[in-house]
Design a protein around this nucleic acid. Structure first.
Lengths: 231, 231
DNA sequence: CGGGTTATTGAGGGGCGTCAACAACCGTGG
DNA sequence: CCACGGTTGTTGACGCCCCTCAATAACCCG
C-alpha cells in the first residue's frame, strides 16, 4: 500500500470512473487522501461481513466479486474491471455484503468513507452518476438472474465465456487471451460444476467455437458462441 | 384513475414507504399532484420498454415485477407489496426496464417525475433512503440470484413458497391464505416448469409441510419448509 | 524431478423438462 | 339449473441433461 504519485486530474481512467463528474477541487482532495494499492492475483480486497471503511476504484486489472452462497458454496456475482467501483454495497451496519478478490494483478485507488461521502454530498453530478450506476447494475443483475434461472448449462457456459471475454476487454476480438480463472471459478460464475465447464469447453472446441489450452482462451467464432448463448 | 381524497400526511403507509423522511411541505405538494389508482388483479401497471412518466407507491395489494426472459419466456423478479416503490428502474432513454402486473387487487399512488425529482432534489432524507433502498434491493437480488443458480428445483419451490408467504404478509402464520398466482407463475418465479411446481407441491403435501387446494395455500410446518429451502 | 493442484474424460444414476392424458375449475350462455 | 368450452392443475411415462464419483492426464511450484 502506497500513496499515489499520479494525480487524479490526469488519471487515464478518470473519465470512465464514478468520478468523471467530480469537481476539480474535490479531485484535489482525493489526490491528497487516497491510497494507491496493488493486489496480486488471488488476493482478497474485501471480505464479506467486514467493516466498510471506504470504496475502491479499479485503475487496472480484473476483480471477481463473490458471496458465500447456498451451502457455503461460493458464487461469483461479477467480474469488475477498469473504472469499476467496489465496496459501496453495504448493509445497515456498514458491513460489506460482497467479497472481492483480484482475478488478475490489480491496481486500485482506495477512498475513505469520509472523503467519498463528502464528495457525494457536494457533487450533484457524482451523486446522480452513482444512482445511475446502481440502476444499471440492478438491470444487469436482473438480466443475469433471468439467464441463470432459465438457461441450460451449455447455454450458461457459452454466456460465461462471453462475460469473461467482455471483462477482459476483448470486444469481439478473436485474439487469444490469458484468463486466471479456474474451471471451478467459471462454474461458480454460473452455478454448475467444474466438470460441466470442462465438458462444454471440449464441445465448443470440437465445434470450432473456441480454442482453449491452460489459461489461454480464444474465441474463434463469436457469432456461433452468441447463438449458443441465445444472445 | 381518480384523485386521492386521503392525505399523504395521514396515510397509513407513509412511514413504511419511500416518503417516510419527506418534509411536510413536499408531502402537501404530492397530495395535490398525485393520482390514486386502483388496479384489479391481472392488470398491467408498467410495460417493459414504455416511457417512464413517474413512479408508483403501493398502498395495498401485491404486484409482480417481471421481464421477458430468455427465449421470450417470462420471469418474475419480485413480488412487491404495501409500501413498495415501482417504476424507478429505468434505462438511459427513460424507458421502464421491468414490467409490473397486479397479482391481487392493488391500490397505488402515482407520482409524476417532475414532483418526484423535485423531492429527491430537496429532501436529503428521501434521497438517502432511496440509495439505501437500492442497496437493499441489490443485496436481495444478489441472494436470489445465487439461490436460483445453485439450488435444486425442490429447494427452489420451497423457497418460492416462503417468498410468496412473505409477500402475502403471513409472517410465520400457519393460517391458510389466498394466492392468485398460477403454478406457471410460481414456475416463472424460479425458472422451472409448472409441472415441477405441481409435483413438488404434492410432495410437500404428503410430507405435511403445506396444504394447498385451488388458490388456497397454507404453510403447516415452517421449520421443515425452511429446512428444505436450506434457510 | 516429484507432489499438489487443476483439467479432462467416462460411467452411472437421478433430477427435471417435455409430452400427453385426464381431472378440476371457471365464467358464459342456453 | 345444467351444459360447455377453455383455462388451469395433477399425474405418469420417457428420455436427456447434469451432478457425483473416480481414474487419468496435464500443469505448476518448489
Amino acid at each position: 500500500m502506497e500513496k499515489q504519485t499520479m494525480s487524479c486530474i490526469t488519471c487515464s481512467i478518470r473519465h470512465c470512473s464514478i468520478l468523471k463528474n467530480c469537481r476539480h477541487e474535490f479531485l484535489e482532495l482525493i489526490d491528497q487522501t487516497k491510497y494507491y494499492m496493488k493486489f496480486t492475483k488471488g488476493h482478497q480486497l474485501i471480505r464479506e461481513g467486514s467493516a466498510a471503511d471506504g470504496v475502491f476504484v479499479i485503475t487496472s486489472g480484473v476483480v471477481k466479486t463473490h458471496v458465500k452462497g447456498y451451502r457455503k458454496r461460493p458464487f461469483i456475482l461479477h467480474l469488475a474491471t477498469t473504472g469499476g467501483l467496489l465496496g459501496y454495497q453495504r448493509n445497515e451496519q456498514k458491513k460489506h455484503q460482497v467479497s472481492a478478490t483480484a482475478a488478475e494483478d490489480t491496481h486500485v485507488c482506495f477512498i475513505e468513507n469520509k472523503e467519498f461521502d463528502l464528495i457525494l454530498q457536494k457533487n450533484v453530478g457524482v451523486r446522480e452518476d452513482l444512482t445511475r450506476e446502481f440502476n444499471k447494475e440492478l438491470s444487469k443483475i436482473h438480466m443475469r438472474t433471468v439467464r441463470l434461472a432459465q438457461m441450460s448449462v451449455r447455454e450458461k457456459v457459452a454466456d460465461a465465456v462471453l462475460l469473461i471475454s467482455h471483462a477482459y476487454g476483448m470486444n469481439n476480438s478473436t485474439k487469444p487471451f490469458t484468463v486466471n480463472l479456474s474451471r471451478e471459478d467459471i462454474g461458480d460464475l454460473i452455478g454448475c460444476t467444474k466438470e460441466q465447464v470442462s465438458k462444454n469447453f471440449s464441445d465448443f472446441k470440437s465445434e470450432k467455437v473456441i480454442t482453449a489450452s491452460g489459461k489461454q482462451l480464444q474465441i474463434v467464432n463469436y457469432k456461433k458462441l452468441k447463438e449458443i448463448a441465445g444472445v
